[in-house]
Amino acid sequence: MDSRTLSHLRALEAESIHIMREVVAEFAKPVMLYSIGKDSSVMIRLAQKAFHPGKLPFPLLHVDTTYKFEEMIAFRDEFTKSIGADLIVHTNRKAIEEGASPFKLGTGKCCALLKTRALLDALEEGGYDAAFGGARRDEEKSRAKERVFSFRDKFGQWDPKTQRPELWNLYNSKVEKGESIRVFPLSNWTEMDVWSYIELENIPIVPLYFAKEREMVVRGNQLIPLEHNMPLAAGEEPQLVMSRMRSLGCTYCTGAIRSEAATMPDIITELVQFRRSERENRIIDHDQEGSMELKKREGYF
């Protein structure tokens, strides 16, 4: 390989940094959505590189459903402090007070209130005209056509027909007041790229990604972490299972996988051998064929 050719990870890195700088240069008030997951961790590292030696020139926004893992919240607070980031946490308090929970409402309705609604409210309250998200195109079929700069109307909604063609690295950042852009700097990254980059860069991630014996409810071929007083079905017994999370969300909607992978190299090896789509275990995608597309139209990230 020519010494003047970037490895694919460095080429992706260069592209993502370009995207982030473009947003900060062209928008009045950007924000970065911070989910605490591995993609967010990569996104933050890229932002640190993009604006080095300065600090992140935008706040991080965490939409907290209150159904997250405790380990995630602890990691969030410590990590964001260590890098001197400005963290905003938003929760749909009203819905929580009215008793919204995945156990009661079912995952679809719960997501709509605690994630989608909460996110839209937080973005509106903050007056943000651009919001970075860590979504990747390889995650799900409906995302394959998502733009890097994804246009949202005044209601935060996405319409496949109003998406703008994107050519070269020339992004169209024009929006009217109230409209906004969701920006996906990791669009061209795959799950494997994300893990390889975390390893290459030694990026801190939530320990939930590493295998450990954890208390789980085994339901069909899904493992559901026993947290937040999850109600058990008749005959169900929690078990200690050697397991880890492949993606992080709310405890009830993040299925775990059986795994022995306790280190970064283990995780990558596991990924190579056992390539299941990242979202296999995220219950929300199973609701309905094409359900992610419906959620996106409503404003879900």
Partner: peptide, 8 residues
């Protein structure tokens, strides 16, 4: 893996 190139 990390030394591979990117082709679009």
């Amino acid at each position: 893996m990390s030394a591979s190139q990117l082709l679009r």
